[in-house]
Design a protein around this nucleic acid. Structure first.
Lengths: 309, 309
DNA sequence: GATGATAATACCTTCAGGGTATGGAGAGGC
DNA sequence: GCCTCTCCATACCCTGAAGGTATTATCATC
């Protein structure tokens, strides 16, 4: 049996007349007769009663008509769904984020992706950088977000954004009164650092910047993530260098100040990592969306700078 | 697309290797490669990633594999079900019976049919003879059971059984004391007749027999069916000629007596009626079962008569 | 019995599916 | 680093099945 047989059968059943069905199928009558005969022979059941006016379905034929329509619908659905899956418009995408990624552009990005690809089921997993890389290799995830990732042998990196580092200071802190805060000014003030855990990470970046400015930071506390860090700033534990995006987090008693005279490298990247050579169209679609968001954001930043000037 | 494509695709997906799949399908490798390429092109989606060791499914391929298996299962099911339907082993059979047919061999017959053809859904309808014929013509039913049906232009008749007529008498009735009851003895006793309604029917048979024996029956009451008739006998309304099968109905105060010296024609037929030229395999199967039951019953009757002698 | 409509049959043609031979690319061993 | 082995892909040929035309058979209707 063949899908053609089903198509022909359905046409004949609907027309109740082989000649008319043949016309509808754009073939001549004899081949259609033969196809129907073949189908009947293969099924071992008479599907039509031949009448002087045409044909009519037997009971077996009625049953087979239902089944044939089901099958055809399923084939169409399979075709359509597979096409969409092939274009990355249908399926599942496992994405890893890190703890305080919620403060970042990631939510907007995920929303943008969902609206472009509503039938891709995005599943979020919270993982540290090391876990993300491991999970990528084991194919438990296809995309990860993190900071400061170097491309590896089998891991590729797309940069999502670059953020300046701002200083979160308690409102009543001496530095809060300064007109301008320069990086070396941080020398004499206790700092909250984050994240604890896997190295190298953002914490190393901050320590490295301090060292480059000629001092060792006074660490008041190390915490797991930016949210806790800013909370400790509010509690008077000291100042804290945070990515600009953390300013989303407005806590009473905390103000964010941009530094002047920042040393080179006083910014932090957000990266999107994935398997090198991953040919998944969903991953490709996701990366496209990421880049689109990045361009859009860059354009907006440029525009606002223009206006600012 | 073609069912062959699905079969080939599933084989390749399962073997993860085109060459091995080709061997399994008993074709050579190049045509299989080409079929897979065609399928991919038609779907507009890559289904396999070519690896040095063979092939592996893409996400779209995984999805399509599920769908393909569904489709194949549905096709197999459709084939199998249609075959059974063509053999009369699957489907629906609308059967009409008359009011007191429950006393007859019909229940056993229906049970026999159900056990032979468990997937044929037998739907029972209670109808009078005229209604049955009308319903047959309108194709609302395919088989009817009734008594005394003459074959018509478009209605064919199979005889199911022949039953002697017995006399239901009240236990305290004068005739109950007779050693032998002959037909003319009924002359002086009021009789219950059934059924009322559509003529000609069983009632005419009884009246005709009385006339043939030279008397007009004294009708005490006409009722709709045998059950009511026997109930009236129990209530002392008189005697009642009933088909032998009615003896299934044992009411207190009623005894059944076989007549001696019965006139010719003192029996009644049970018939099975259906449309002439009905080619439904289910009807054919049903008629076969009816005839098988009839033969079996006749053989049993013969055997018991031998033993009786 | 003639006519018209419809399915079935006979026979021819074409093209898709299958075959063999071969090329090309990547992995793994020496 | 080269060779070899193992895949898949390509090239080209051949056969059979699907489709076409012409015709016949059948049945209902006038």
């Amino acid at each position: 049996m063949d899908l053609r047989h089903l198509r022909y059968f359905i046409a004949v059943a609907e027309e109740q007349n082989i000649g008319r069905a043949a016309a509808r199928l754009h073939i001549s009558q004899p081949p259609l007769t033969r196809q129907i005969q073949q189908l009947e022979e293969e099924l071992g059941a008479r599907l039509f009663l031949r009448t002087p006016r045409g044909v009519e379905l037997t009971e077996a034929g009625e049953l087979f008509l239902e089944e044939a329509r089901n099958i055809r619908a399923l084939v169409e659905q399979a075709t359509e769904r597979t096409q969409r899956a092939g274009q990355g418009r249908l399926g599942r995408l496992d994405v890893a984020i890190f703890g305080s990624a919620i403060l970042d552009r990631i939510p907007k990005l995920l929303l943008a992706f969902r609206s472009r690809y509503p039938d891709v089921n995005v599943v979020l997993h919270t993982m540290t950088k090391v876990e993300q890389i491991e999970a990528l290799r084991q194919r438990r995830i296809s995309v990860g977000f993190n900071r400061m990732v170097a491309p590896g042998e089998d891991i590729a990196v797309d940069q999502v954004s670059t953020e300046d580092l701002l200083l979160a200071v308690p409102a009543d802190h001496p530095l809060a009164r300064h007109e301008r805060i320069r990086f070396p000014d941080l020398k004499h003030h206790p700092m909250v650092l984050f994240p604890t855990g896997t190295r190298p990470s953002f914490i190393d970046k901050v320590v490295g910047l301090c060292n480059a400015s000629g001092f060792q930071p006074q660490v008041s506390q190390e915490v797991g993530d930016a949210v806790t860090g800013v909370a400790l700033v509010a509690g008077g534990f000291g100042v804290c260098l945070v990515p600009e995006s953390a300013t989303t987090l407005q806590l009473p008693g905390v103000i964010y100040r941009r530094l002047t005279d920042t040393p080179p490298g006083c910014f932090v990247d957000l990266c999107c990592i994935y398997r090198k050579g991953d040919k998944s169209p969903i991953v490709a679609a996701f990366r496209e969306t990421v880049q689109a968001c990045r361009s859009m954001h860059a354009a907006q930043a440029e525009a606002s700078r223009q206006i600012g000037n």
